[in-house]
Amino acid sequence: MANIPQKVVHKYLRHNKKFPHVWCPGCSNGTTLGSIIRAIAELNYDRDGITMVSGIGCSSRMPVYVDFNTLHTLHGRALPFATGIKMQKPEQKVIVITGDGDATAIGGNHFIHACRRNIDITTIVLNNNIYGMTGGQYSPTTPTGDRATTSPYGNIDPVFDICELAMAAGATFVARTTAFHALETQDIIKKALEHKGFSVVEVVSACPVIYGRLNKKGGGPEMMMHMRDNSVPLKATEKMTPEQLEGKIVRGIFKQVNKLEYCDAYANLMSQFNVKEEAKK
């Protein structure tokens, strides 16, 4: 027996649950979970004041492993559940963990309307460009030309840019980072959590076992090297030509504005009716 040091992240993990976790070797989901936990630890939030909600998918298994209030819901429907929680308990920090398929395919409708309402929820989209959990069908973010089990000769669909989509739909904080840039992810998630309004953080992730294998992108380390070598910070893009930007992942905070938040708008409305505090509870 020996005492060995333990990382801060373990404080927030349900370590009595099934660890090692279910994710494949080299999958970015675990790395991003670490960044999320470090962000929360730095902000010193009370664990009971956080609710983590997810839909279905590999990435959506995340709440299972953390010691917050957690909800593992239906495919694509994390945001409606989260909206209900936030409306009922506006003091809770509500975090939604979703995949690219979960957020932009089956849950696309919920996603744009949550953006439009500007409800104070932080949505972290783990974009691995594929439906990982169900074995590799293409998603709305699978790059055109790439292979999936449903596009064995290459995908012909143009892709959704999750950040553009969120900005256009009215989200008030929109950022992109990659799982490899763990410190940056931590920092951006901190800012997103502190932002009042609907915040979207797209984390470009590696699914080495399904997407990586189908597209010969190598294993976890190689896919992380790709994120390192093929991404540029937003600042650096100013001096770049469209040709140079071709195929690059742009990282940074694209939008950060203050607008009336949905729970506040609702409270304003209700205040006219002189609803008693007790009645609300």
């Binding site: 992240v9 660890f19 994710w23 992380m224």
Partner: peptide, 8 residues
């Protein structure tokens, strides 16, 4: 620490 997906 930061990059290990498995907290290992």
């Amino acid at each position: 620490d930061r990059l290990c997906p498995d907290f290992a």
